[in-house]
């Protein structure tokens, strides 16, 4: 196998606060291969955004503490100077964000904002940048790009603004596109459009995509591999088939059960994950998910489970239950909500 495009090694991100050290990301490792689509799934505060913001080194909070390595194409991004990092940002790794309504500068035309990005990373003549910007807008499906290029962000709808953000991200043909909840603020119909667009772009541009979301449904169609994060750690990792058809971690079951599914007979109640995510300052002893886990037993409150492969190739989970136990309990509790196993 070739070297992965991005490899995160034992990344820890903490913030000093008045109440103590908040361990937002607590020792995670994963890789992203070239052209691969990786979904990172978890609740608010699970550390999924912080992880990818750290890859971009976009966290400006002076109280942040990083540990670990982020290796992109053989270079450790953590060790790069600000100037060297700027070359990576926008040119090799691009990012789009959750709220398209506030992610574009309201005082400049969208053309200006795309051209600014192009000029920062390329040596272009005056007309070239504009022509390229029009091409990009056409590629992301904005009608009449020659006219719309001179419009300001507020003249676009939410879905259209997210398209502009994607055009911006694609302007330098990045090898890695990070999409942080790109559809959460949008209508389902517009969400379908944007996901379709990201899928096509992956096909046309061949860039790898990391898609962050709280909704497993969003990544079912688009992701090759999925990481499930809880309280700053990865609790399960596997390819799409493994995560959806043979989920191992009770937290993943909970996430799957929470979705009101259109493809299943209506249930009387949704399966929920009781309670709230734990405090990231004082992590509970043992497994972080134990206080909310209906399957917890003695060992869970003493020993922190490690992320290991138990069922198969590349399918990792952090749970003390044995594989047989897990399958039996899973089938007993949320069987009807799971997809048919192969």
């Amino acid at each position: 196998m070739a070297e992965p495009l991005l490899s995160v090694k034992d990344l820890k991100v903490s913030f000093r606060t008045e109440d103590g050290l908040v361990r937002a990301v607590d020792g995670i490792s994963f890789t992203v291969d070239e052209g691969e689509v990786v979904g990172i799934v978890g609740e608010s505060g699970s550390g999924k955004s912080v992880t990818m913001m750290s890859v971009m080194r976009l966290i400006t909070d002076p109280n942040v503490i990083y540990e670990g390595e982020i290796v992109y194409k053989g270079r450790n991004l953590m060790g790069l100077s600000q100037d060297a990092m700027r070359e990576v940002r926008g040119e090799e790794i691009a990012m789009i964000f959750q709220d398209p309504m506030t992610s574009l500068n309201p005082v400049y035309t969208i053309g200006w904002q795309i051209e600014e990005q192009l000029n920062e990373h390329n040596d272009l003549k005056k007309g070239q940048a504009r022509r390229r910007a029009i091409d990009l807008l056409a590629q992301v499906g904005i009608p009449r790009p020659e006219q719309r290029i001179d419009d300001h962000p507020h003249q676009f709808s939410g879905g259209m603004r997210q398209r502009v953000m994607i055009a911006l991200a694609l302007s330098c043909n990045p090898d890695l596109l990070i999409a942080d909840e790109p559809t959460t603020a949008l209508d389902v119909t517009i969400q379908a459009q944007i996901l379709e667009l990201i899928k096509n772009l992956k096909r046309d541009f061949g860039s790898a995509v990391v898609l962050i979301t709280h909704d497993l449904g969003v990544v079912a169609d688009i992701a090759d591999r999925i990481l499930v994060m809880y309280a700053g750690r990865i609790v399960e990792e596997g390819n799409k088939e493994q995560i959806f058809y043979d989920p191992q971690h009770p937290y993943t079951w909970g996430l799957l059960g929470s979705i009101a599914r259109l493809d299943r007979p209506k249930r009387r109640r949704l399966t929920t994950i009781a309670g709230q995510p734990p405090s990231l300052i004082n992590r509970p002893r043992g497994c972080s998910f134990r206080p909310r886990c209906p399957q917890a037993f003695d060992r869970c409150s003493v020993e922190d489970p490690a992320l290991t492969a138990k069922v198969g190739d590349g399918h990792l989970d952090a749970c003390h239950l044995s594989v047989e136990d897990k399958r039996a309990r899973r089938d007993a509790t949320i069987r009807p909500e799971l997809a048919e196993s192969a």
């Binding site: 389902v188 379908a192 909704d215 449904g217 079912a220 169609d221 493809d263 997809a339």
Partner: peptide, 14 residues
């Protein structure tokens, strides 16, 4: 169209 836009958490069906 609205129904078909709802994501389904099942890769094969999806």
């Amino acid at each position: 169209a609205l129904l078909s836009a709802v994501p389904i958490p099942d890769p094969r069906e999806s």
